[in-house]
Amino acid sequence: RISMSVTEIRSGFTAIKANIQARDPIRTLSILSHPQSLHKVKSSDRCCIIHNLFNFYMDKVFKHCQTEDSYINRKISSIANSFLSIKRKLEQCHNQNKCLCGQESTEKFKQILANYEGLNITSAAIKSLGELDILLDWMEKSR
């Protein structure tokens, strides 16, 4: 059922993509895809990266993306609540220890946090939200 929730997140994101990405003027930095692409993550590290990224979005991204537009705020709430319901399901897998973090994925996630902390919190949150399709494309491609 995770796939259907991802589809719901995708449709919520598509509704706000242009608006959110337009609020991110920084072309020279990506939170998720550079210097090392998510697509280079080994499949064995997938579960751990997804788990860490869901926590990243819950803890560091959505709450700092308040806008003046109530439609955008409602869509962000919808995405955040869908993230939460997926996170609950993933936790079952993580609690059963099937979600080991290898060296590579630990490094990758550190890089993501470093990219995030390289910006002020609002810019970093808006940029991360604007890159949600990068996360979804990678999750769906390697499903």
């Binding site: 920084i26 072309r27 020279t28 930095l29 990506s30 895809s33 550079h34």
Partner: peptide
Amino acid sequence: YSVYGIGK
């Protein structure tokens, strides 16, 4: 043109 995240 530019690749997003590289920006050159």
